[in-house]
Design a protein around this nucleic acid. Structure first.
Lengths: 341, 341
DNA sequence: GTTAGCACTCTCACAGGGAGAGTGCCAGCG
DNA sequence: CGCTGGCACTCTCCCTGTGAGAGTGCTAAC
């Protein structure tokens, strides 16, 4: 059933006002602040209808109206429009990204920090998780005769460091030669290929073993998401009132387990999702909303940018910011690692 | 003035009981729980004396006694003895460390997590910060004609990655040659030397500029400490009562600014310090205590292991844990990087 | 359809009071 | 002279009640 124009704009006013003030909005407040050409009683009547249709509720008899989950959903789908971040803000963020070290983890850290800062909500940014890692370039640096530092640049946007022991003493020049030799062979290969590669001597074998092991290990490790904005989100009035919820949130962030609530498995490339209140599968987030935008699907299991906050979050800004950052991360990855993906 | 034996053991009982229960300890509670051969009135009398000497206070007339900062200090210096971590716990932690990747940052993460977990307090672990970085090896990887990925291996156990723009188009083979040429020149040099190096052409100049900038920048960045245990510390009853203090703590951790409260500048190699209450220079920590143990002084500006919690922390366990972890980190660094420092 | 008026309900803040906990002090005892 | 039992005193905590304020729901009139 469609809402009348006036009722729709009242719904929009109530939601935007509540998002801003975090207090139930009263009929009189609406007519005064927004200079409507009707009386408070009329607004009350319309609000009653909106409530009977499930878009609004009120916490108790003598309180103003607050949006229901259904109200928020309608707002996100039909009312809020399609905002974008300001040009100046976009430029600032872009600049920061190009200043940063060109590593996916660093970008994730940076994106999480910037998002958290600008929204005052919890931001989680996970880098894409490659299915397999393929060597792009291999360097060996002699620490001493029996120990070398291995540096592997992989095609999947990552640099790995690992110590590798050498069974036989190997002076620096010889090690250089070894690296040069192996580079030709292993370039573009994944762990399995490296493992099956015939080694010429014991040193080569040791290096190949370490390399294969490290390629496997780093796949696991690369899932680590960056989280920022805990301070902002627990400062939100909804958490202020319930200390035990704050504590749960803090624990979840401290142990990084909050990431399990992001439905990354069901994301479509390029698709942005907004989960409002009980859309969230987890009980813990039943009073929260989550905005998630995937990126980098072509680099393995998709990475994502997620925003978590109370259902009374600024959806317009959150969606715009999530969209912008996921696109930017995609662009960064394509620029730096795209040529070889 | 020396305390009588009995008064001293009453002080010890009060402090240990308060550390355990977090509630002011009453005279009757002491005689009952610890089966003392005296009456509550006697204990009360002794407590009055301890209070007049400044070792105890009580929050209001009809409350039991709590230790004052002076009481805690006396406890730490004379009463608590010198505990060590259990053998089994030591073995478990050692095992975890030798499983981890051989990178200082990883160790710091691990140590912070383990400490926070086992103490229920905030743990901060900072890796040693080198005074200057010297190039060991430089690699340039062509991303496209105008953009290269620079990888710098520095002698101080660190790998830096950075994007560098190229003013003139430069195909991969040419870039390789450039890297090879520069490598001979910059190997062993620090930022200042690199900056003063005469460049042969515009590309070389651009690379050298980026390199010098990056060497400087990474010194700052390498201080990044690992922090864990926020959940544990704000669950402590002293924070539970004061939400705005919790919020401050959360903000400080979220923005990593809590590290500025660790007095790392004044640390002696091998020396462990315990700052109790207003020993702390910062107002924010006036109701907290801090245990800090340095390590790795020979690798630059000393790293440290720090524990932060309410003054009512378990000093014995905290000191033992901090001491153990700093020694372990020292040992790990010596094993892996000792040869080349 | 809109509006003014009014009764009703619920929250919030504050004050008062009783129970409980623990001390401080005093007088008496070994 | 140190130790102890007893008792009055004080302070917190929790519960209750009350009054003001806010905002709605309803009704009757325009």
């Amino acid at each position: 059933m469609a809402l009348s124009d006036r009722r729709e704009s009242i719904l929009q006013i109530v939601i935007q006002d509540y998002i801003e003030t975090a207090t139930p909005v009263a009929s009189r407040h609406v007519v005064e602040r927004y200079a409507l050409p009707t009386s408070a009683a009329t607004i009350r009547h319309e609000m009653q209808l909106l409530e009977s249709e499930g878009y609004l509720t009120h916490p108790h008899t003598s309180a103003g109206r607050i949006p229901s989950n259904r109200g928020y959903r309608h707002f996100v789908q039909s009312l809020m429009g399609h905002a974008e971040l300001g040009v100046a803000e976009q430029a600032t963020v872009r600049h920061q990204f190009f200043q940063a070290a060109p590593a996916v983890d660093e970008w994730a850290d940076l994106a999480a920090t910037v998002l958290a800062q600008s929204l005052g909500l919890l931001a989680i940014v996970a880098p894409p998780q490659p299915q397999r890692l393929r060597v792009r370039q291999l360097e060996l640096i002699s620490l001493n005769d029996l120990l070398a530092l291995m540096i592997v640049v992989v095609q999947e946007a990552r640099v790995i460091r690992q110590l590798t022991p050498l069974p036989a003493p190997c002076p620096p020049e010889q090690l250089d030669a070894l690296a040069h030799r192996l580079n030709i062979d292993v370039s573009g290969q994944d762990a399995d290929a490296v493992r099956n590669f015939p080694a010429a001597d014991a040193d080569e074998q040791a290096v190949l073993d370490t390399l294969a092991r490290v390629l496997d290990r780093d796949i696991e490790r690369s899932g680590a998401a960056s989280i920022a904005g805990l301070g902002g989100v627990v400062s939100q009035p909804e958490f202020h009132a319930e200390p035990e919820r704050s504590l749960q949130m803090i624990e979840l962030v401290d142990r990084q387990t909050i990431t399990q609530f992001v439905p990354h498995a069901t994301l479509q490339a390029g698709g942005l999702r907004v989960l409002i209140g009980d859309d969230n599968p987890s009980d813990f987030l039943h009073d929260c909303s989550l905005v998630v935008a995937p990126y980098g699907a072509e680099y393995g299991r998709s990475g994502y940018v997620a925003i978590i906050g109370p259902t009374r979050m600024n959806y317009s800004r959150s969606v715009a910011a999530a969209r912008f950052h996921s696109a930017l991360l995609q662009e960064m990855m394509d620029t730096v690692y795209g040529g070889s993906a």
